[in-house]
Design a binder for these strands. Sequence first.
DNA 1: CGGGTAAGCGGACACCTGTCCGCAAAGACG
DNA 2: CGTCTTTGCGGACAGGTGTCCGCTTACCCG
Lengths: 182, 182
Amino acid sequence: MTPPRADASANRDRILAAARAEIAINAEAKLNAIAQRAGVGQGTLYRHFPTRAHLLAEVYRTDVDELVEAATTLLATHEPVTALARWFDRVADYAQVKRDVMAAVESATWADLSAHSHGPIGDAVTRLLQAGQFAGTIRPDADARDVIILITYLSRLDAEEFADRARHLLAIVLDGLRTPHR
Amino acid sequence: MTPPRADASANRDRILAAARAEIAINAEAKLNAIAQRAGVGQGTLYRHFPTRAHLLAEVYRTDVDELVEAATTLLATHEPVTALARWFDRVADYAQVKRDVMAAVESATWADLSAHSHGPIGDAVTRLLQAGQFAGTIRPDADARDVIILITYLSRLDAEEFADRARHLLAIVLDGLRTPHR
DNA sequence: CGGGTAAGCGGACACCTGTCCGCAAAGACG
DNA sequence: CGTCTTTGCGGACAGGTGTCCGCTTACCCG
């Protein structure tokens, strides 16, 4: 864990800036183009962000943080299940505007998973679920990973289908997460 | 809609045979290798099956048909919700053994969707849902496409996670599809 | 059976993602 | 300030998917 070299972190920043700029123009920018714009080689880009998703995760980090924070706020002001429902709405909002946020979320949690942690998003979801489980309104056997898996379909819907179905699907998932009453 | 040329359909068959053979050895065979084994060019393969998924859909057609048939059988012998639950089990079985069956299912329904039909799988799911909706046990606003979307995550779980979570996730989805009781 | 035409062939090619490795230069240390 | 180590650079390359287009050949028709 030695501190990073000066040029390395400078490059990292330049890559992120270039990625943000490039993605603003075209959501599915080629990694080549980003590297070129940042004035670094391909290898450099890939060393800093081993996969496209890692890069996205960092680019959208602010948005991801906002989602995490929203979970806390919602929990403070609503019943757990309602908080979860609202949080889903929030997720849908993000996913609609920038489809890639979902990919970022997914990749963020994935990356963290192998490190035996859930990562910030996972923790947020865990808090939401546990509150509901404590109140008895969320099924006890559901965990954050379940939720992440079930909502990542959002990133694969095209714009039209998203508009038609996203919230509806989230409602189904939400009902599935409630405590079975029968 | 002119009938296909003789060599064309012969090639189609050869490609399918080659694909089956190649996939039996290695589930993620390169399309190149399949084309080569079939003795046709890349272009030919891609013309017949524009994408990997289309090819898989055809390769696993028998399995897909079996799933479709299972829906009918289950409906005849069980309550609708139970039938759906059992059918989910069946899907999980297939998905576990051959991960690609799910991709095939997905692509099959996708391809059919653009043709404004649901395709065989979609129809099977529709029958299951409608029976439950008629009985009042499945939420009236759920349709086949919802189910397809929600269960295609199965194809993206790795073997370990599949074993841990697949059925559990299907149970959550199933509960979400029940009529909300509150 | 011979000629015309369009369907179909097949492989070269474009394009992306991700890897590898020889080289440069950053920073520690005397 | 010089030298050594070691981090980091960058671009060539491998490997894969899907496209394109000039040539072939099956099939219709006279």
